[in-house]
């Protein structure tokens, strides 16, 4: 089984209230020196069968239509090579 990782982040120009909340909390907890925080989400997809170009194209489509809201979010798709090597 191969793993494909989809990382979804708000586009840089979009306000990230969660990231801001984290950033504001950090100094209160004694963690200094962080100028900005952006929070995203990561999907780990366990893919049945080979991760070939067709499979990746399907995952791109899936990410663009469902996993990410492309009006406000960007996403990247990558194959988790460590998992691939194990299997």
């Amino acid at each position: 089984m191969a793993r494909v990782v989809v990382d979804v982040m708000l586009k840089p120009e979009i306000l990230d209230p969660q990231g801001q909340a984290v950033q504001r909390a950090l100094p209160r907890l004694g963690f200094e020196g962080i100028a900005d925080v952006r929070q995203g989400k990561r999907f780990e997809l366990e893919v049945e069968g080979p991760v070939d170009e067709a499979a990746l194209a399907r995952i791109h489509e899936m990410a663009g239509t469902f996993l990410a809201n492309t009006v406000i979010e960007d996403f990247t798709v990558r194959v988790d090579e460590a998992v691939r090597a194990e299997s």
Binding site: L10, K11, E13, I14, L15, D16, P17, Q20, A21, V71, I72
Partner: peptide, 10 residues
């Protein structure tokens, strides 16, 4: 457009 995002707690 660059969509505005709201922060109701703010």
């Amino acid at each position: 457009p660059a969509v505005q995002v709201g922060d109701p707690f703010q």
